[in-house]
Design a protein around this nucleic acid. Structure first.
Length: 527
RNA sequence: CGGGGCGUAGCGCAGCCUGGUAGCGCACCUGCUUUGGGAGCAGGGGGCCCGGAGUUCAAAUCUCCGCGCCCCGACCA
């Protein structure tokens, strides 16, 4: 399930210090003083981050600011993704893209502007998206003959192309992906999780048969789960969406659902089987071996910059970000320590040697040579930024030819190991990174298990648990769409998915209707 | 789109009630001392106080009208 070892090698350009690390390129400000009174309670740690238990949403915004991931933009609902935040997204892109190519997909690019008439062809599709469309009506100073929608997704314009690309069964399957930005005019936005403009990849494929298309839908769902778990260290539930939550225009929607640090669910990737819905309206047909015309079956699937939000919220703690090694822009940071000027020379020379060794082994390493900051400040600074491994190098370590290693997933002293020989360190680092990856994964999994409730068999207990405990609730479900909506109204919980792994199991009683069913659903509050 | 809050230095805020020409912390710059878990001292730079109109000898402060942002609820990857 999880790919190892090579995952942690540095594929982000060279392992040399990227530019966003240079002090000169860092934001000129890092406010440490927050007006809030809870800071007083945190006097010892001098935290600049609101504890998660105080206000989760504020914690999230604090982390984004302090770790320099995003900034507000002058445009409402849009964000600036800063270099450190963008580097995380680039790592996600790299990991996904590699897997898309390995499964035969090709990248292409389709236009940002979509004729309104295209969107209107598929009734459910336009119905689902029209409330959140941005529409261009003027171009070059003149009213356009036909308004152009800024793409909220590209099924239609790609369908239009596919109808020309597909003639014969020999053209199938057609496996295309595009990396793009899309716009959905959201009323309530949050950086990464829901912004008016966001970045994503959208895969679009066409197949001869329903079976082939369904296989593709699930194959991509598997890839998403693999990247979530094996790369981002986030345990996910693969599941099918209810009719209410289904993508506008899809026959079936699948998703990976993850639990965030406050117990809420986050949909981190989706994969749709679109049936013939789009091939019929865009006339995508092929001739089979018998020379008969058939409509293709299409799929689409996407992961967006929201995934970065999932990484932040699945792993972050009260000290800040905790990044899975495979996605961390910096995997290892070296903090040099000295007292006297003579020590400084020796320590820096030694630290540079260590850095060069690691860089030569394709490890993304950074030596923090910033002057005038205490080691303690740097420790906190890099923890805030979620760097998985920190090496501390002082005069004692130089003398003993050692380093101190601190692992980000274990707090304070617990994560520190003293006296690790610098000899052969580069060979040990991948193992240490794997340890951090596994640690993060196990912690997230344990958290999800501790906050997943099963065995609820009546509505009162369901509501009570929803009210008092939160987290996921896993139940048998035979309710109607209306039941689902009413439950959402009353409890704010939504039917996240029907977990793939739970279906076809022993029948149980639906907690709401009392009917016997073998359908299992997960309910949760969601972002 | 409803309810609430806020616009003053890069960031966070005080000043506004009771008008008199702008201040604090952090950040930034310089110097010295520091540096094994968020250093100290000294000096320094930085403001169309959201915009417009009004009241007044005088407006960050009072009045009106805009605009913007944030937070909380209904739609959503």
């Amino acid at each position: 399930m999880r790919e190892r070892v090579s995952l942690f090698a540095g594929r982000l350009s060279s392992a040399a210090d990227p530019c966003y690390l240079c002090p000169a390129h860092r934001a000129p400000h890092r406010s440490r003083q927050r007006g809030a009174s809870h800071i007083a309670e945190q006097a010892m740690t001098e935290s600049v981050i609101t504890p998660r238990s105080v206000d989760y949403s504020r914690w999230y915004l604090d982390v984004l600011r302090e770790a320099e991931l995003t900034e507000d933009s002058p445009v409402r609902g849009s964000m600036i993704i800063k270099p450190y935040g963008y580097a995380i997204w680039e790592a996600v892109q790299r990991e996904l893209d590699r897997r898309f190519k390995a499964t035969g997909h090709q990248n292409a690019y389709f236009p940002l502007f979509i004729p309104m008439s295209f969107l209107e062809k598929e009734a459910k599709h336009v119905e689902g998206f029209s409330p959140e469309l941005a529409i261009v009506t003027i171009g070059g100073g003149k009213q356009l003959e036909e308004p152009l929608a800024v793409r909220p997704t590209s099924e239609t314009i790609i369908g239009h192309a596919f109808s020309r690309w597909v003639k014969s069964y020999r053209d199938l399957p057609l496996l295309i992906n595009q990396w793009a930005n899309v716009v959905r005019w959201e009323l309530r936005t949050r950086p990464f999780l829901r912004t008016t403009e966001f970045l994503w990849q959208e895969g679009h494929t066409a197949h001869a048969t329903q079976d082939d298309a369904l296989d593709e839908t699930l194959r991509m769902l598997d890839i998403y789960a693999e990247v979530a778990e094996g790369v981002a260290a986030i345990p996910v539930i693969k599941g099918q969406k209810s009719e209410n939550e289904r993508f506008a225009g899809a026959v079936a929607t699948y998703a990976i659902e993850a639990m965030m640090g406050n117990g809420w669910a986050l949909q981190a990737g989706t994969s749709h089987y679109l049936g013939e819905n789009f091939s019929r309206v865009f006339n995508i047909q092929y001739l089979d071996v018998q020379n008969e015309q058939h409509y293709v079956h299409t799929t689409s699937w996407g992961v967006s910059t929201r995934f970065v939000g999932a990484v932040i919220m699945a792993h972050g703690d009260d000290r800040g970000l905790r990044l899975p090694p495979a996605l961390a822009p910096i995997q290892v940071v070296i903090v040099p320590i000295w007292r006297k000027n003579e020590e400084r020379q020796d320590v820096l020379a030694y630290a540079r040697r260590v850095r060069d060794d690691l860089a030569a082994a394709e490890i993304r390493v950074h030596l923090d040579e910033r002057d005038g900051l205490t080691p303690g400040f740097k420790f906190n600074d890099w923890e805030l930024r979620g760097v998985p491994l920190r090496l501390e190098v002082g005069p004692r370590d130089v003398r003993d030819n050692c380093v101190v290693v601190a692992r980000r997933h274990l707090p304070g002293k617990e994560g520190k190991t003293f006296g690790i020989p610098s000899e052969g360190l580069a060979a040990r680092v991948p193992g240490l990174l794997r340890e951090v990856h596994d640690g993060l994964y196990q912690q997230a999994l344990a958290f999800r298990q501790a906050n997943t409730r099963e065995g609820i068999d009546d509505v009162a207990a369901f509501k009570k648990h929803a009210e008092e405990a939160g987290g996921f609730i896993k139940v048998h479900w035979a309710g109607s769409n209306e039941d689902e909506l009413r439950l959402k109204e009353e409890t704010k919980l939504t039917l996240r998915c029907f977990p793939v792994s739970e279906q076809g199991g022993p029948a149980g009683r639906c907690f709401l209707t009392g009917q016997l069913t073998n359908r299992v659903a997960v309910f949760s509050r969601a972002f």
